[in-house]
């Protein structure tokens, strides 16, 4: 199969929101419990504009949970997470954090894209409608404008032939590319990728990674939970290793993969490399 090399993905959506001080994500002391299970035990992470951070770690280390906290799909019990300088999911009242109003949370989420392991496209809508839905419904973008942007995005992820196709008739790789386009259509300041290639057949991983690499090159700020070492090496700025609810080590892909300091990192890398 000849792969349509995507390009100008960000150009298709226009201006992205700017963060004032160049810091997109600021998480400090994030703690999370599922009932009595302590999943996150104080996670600190800063992500700068245009940075690509790859989160790795054994299953159960809390990396996916942490990612889901960043757009408040999960509540946190301690700590704080800010995106573009705004506290996510909570507001401060007399020095205490209380959960924010639903409307505000929704507005914050609209600035944070998310790409899921299982794609989660809307099966009752066509590829194009999947992309148009949020801009039209949430942003109030005129339908014509949203359609134009949707068509551009689909073309740039190599799916111009699948505009009117329903997700059920697309391959996994095609669905994930539509899902990325859907996230991009909201002009997010940041996109979270939750194991975007682990539900894919091996021959489809490449086409999704190509789109993600292109996005990284174009300067999208990304946090990626993935064990795709090739991707991390090629476009990752930083690799963050999590285990048992904390970050145990981080560094550039080259330094972390070649000379990990921690025993647990070594053990983990030896299993997946």
């Amino acid at each position: 199969m000849t792969l349509h090399t995507p390009h100008d993905l960000l150009d298709a959506v226009g201006e992205l929101p700017q963060s004032p001080d160049g810091l997109v994500v600021e998480a400090t002391g994030v703690q999370k419990y599922f009932g009595r299970l302590h999943v996150l035990k104080g996670v600190d992470l800063t992500v700068r504009k245009r940075e690509v951070v790859v989160l790795i770690g054994p299953s159960g280390s809390g990396k996916t949970t942490f990612l889901r906290c960043i757009n408040h799909l999960e509540r946190i019990q301690e700590g704080r997470i800010s995106v573009n300088g705004h506290l996510i999911g909570y507001r401060e009242e007399n020095g205490k954090l209380v959960e924010d109003k639903e409307r505000n949370i929704a507005a914050q989420r609209s600035q944070i894209g998310m790409v899921f392991q299982r794609f989660n496209l809307f099966p009752h809508l066509t590829a194009l409608e999947n992309i148009m839905e949020a801009p039209v419904q949430v942003r109030g973008t005129p339908e014509e404008e949203a359609r134009e942007m949707g068509l551009k995005l689909l073309e740039r992820v190599g799916l111009e032939a699948k505009v009117d196709t329903y997700p059920g008739q697309l391959s996994g790789g095609q669905q994930q590319r539509v899902a990325i386009a859907r996230a991009l259509a909201m002009k997010p300041a940041l996109i979270l990728f939750d194991e975007p290639t682990s539900a894919l057949d091996p021959e489809m991983i490449g086409e999704v990674l190509d789109v993600m690499k292109e996005l990284a090159v174009e300067g999208m700020t990304m946090i990626v939970v993935s064990h795709e070492m090739g991707f991390a090496r090629e476009v990752g700025d930083r690799v963050v290793m999590m285990d048992e609810g904390i970050i145990i080590e981080e560094g550039s892909p080259a330094s972390l993969f070649e000379s990990p300091r921690e025993e647990r990192t070594k053990a983990f890398l030896s299993k997946i490399l």
Binding site: N71, L73, R118
Partner: peptide, 13 residues
Amino acid sequence: GQMEAAKSLGMTY
């Protein structure tokens, strides 16, 4: 996952 995807796009419940 459908509700989560919708919420992550900024939709209210």
